[in-house]
Design a protein around this nucleic acid. Sequence first.
RNA 1: GCGCAGGUGGCAGAGCGGUCAAUUGCACGAGACUGUAAAUCUCGCGCCUUCGGGCUACGGGGGUUCGAAUCCCUCCCUGCGCACCA
Length: 421
Amino acid sequence: MQQNVFTLLKERGFVKQSTDEEGIRELLSGSPITFYAGFDPTADSFHVGNLALIMAMSHLQRAGHRAIALLGGGTALIGDPSGRTEARPMMAQETIDANSARLRLQLAQFLTLDEEERGMLLDNALWLCEARYIDFLREVGAHFRVNEMVKTETYRERMERGEGLSFLEFNYQLLQAYDYLQLFHKYRCVLQIGGSDQWGNMIAGVDLVRRKERKLVYVFTIPLVTAAGGKKMGKTAAGAVWLDAEKTSPYEFYQYWINVDDGDVERFLLLFTFLPAEEIRKLASAQGAALRDAKARLAFEVTTLVHGEAEAKRAREGAHAAFGGGEDGDASAVPTITISRTRLAQGIPIVDLLVETGLSASKGAARRLIAQGGVSIGGATISSPDAIMREKQLLDNNAFLLRAGKRRYHRVVVENGAHSR
RNA sequence: GCGCAGGUGGCAGAGCGGUCAAUUGCACGAGACUGUAAAUCUCGCGCCUUCGGGCUACGGGGGUUCGAAUCCCUCCCUGCGCACCA
């Protein structure tokens, strides 16, 4: 007998609020239902902050339910009211299309999107862009009480803090509620899941369906996953941790997970891997330095999910090469730049290398870093900001590891060609 | 439209004619300690530099002044109040 998915999701930490826990549990234990979750196509890739929701969808789909990933192409088109140029809306349409195409590929790694029984990808532009204002107001607007809306947390907060609220923003809730109504009509969709910050909008959808159709539909939210210290998930100094290998290499992705706080290991294993709960508990029960093994497992599993096993192995090898101390490990996964041998023959200021590898944002920052003793090559600390890298300093003759701080590495490969970058 | 209060570094928020590249807190980075963790302590945190200094910055533009983030004008933006909606 299989465990109820909802119970499973709850145990793994995916459930924060819900309209009716028992109702949802029951709903999910019966014959397959259709559920959806919305995503904003404002970027051309998901990042780890989106991953929990995707994982939750995957769990539901594995349990036999039909998934709808709804891209907010329509809502995104309206966009941020504070930015304004004439050309922008037209651009946005193209960008949104391009983004959607890429997001779709990413979703397909986690979900079966056969456009039929198992799952599908939709875009709310389909109905929102066609909606006509008067019709929309009569059909949807009539069911919303402004005095009620104003009382909800999101809006009330904004107004109390004296930040004001534009009519455009005020409408978001209606648009999202309308999504639910549409999906209910077209696909008998009866469950929505989303980030807990979306609670208000999701509830609005439930209310709309009830008022218009007198049918009960459900929602539950997933906690906004934060790293220890309340930080938003997936934010590093370099920016977000993306799922797209072009934006965040598998090695960097792997490193992100290796570097999570001790206190996050168990929670993250439950949320971001499919390992059985008992196994996770065992892994995470390790104390002290032994917990690194659990982190390594976490990093490997998540990297495998996102980038495939081969890349995960390479990333792990890269980590061994950089942090293992010895010669073992294949460093090829470590971020790499190439420089020409002729250029190296003339000597390259270390400061320049730091900037070119992106380890430092500017020469000034690079100098400071060196002055603070934060830079080393092949284990030897660079002592002078004016240090020059010369050919004879190469240990083996075609590559070396440049280290900035304790955990950032970049590999520099020397090529015989005349080119450099 | 009128009146009032504001627009300062990633954020919050000082400064209100020179000593301001700009107090402070958060965030971030490095070092020490460690376990590629946390906490703690110390340092750093616009860009360039031949390390003397140079350059660009306090919503945009213009002005006053030897000198402006600081004063004046104007425009834009935000919030609050009032009015308009005959």
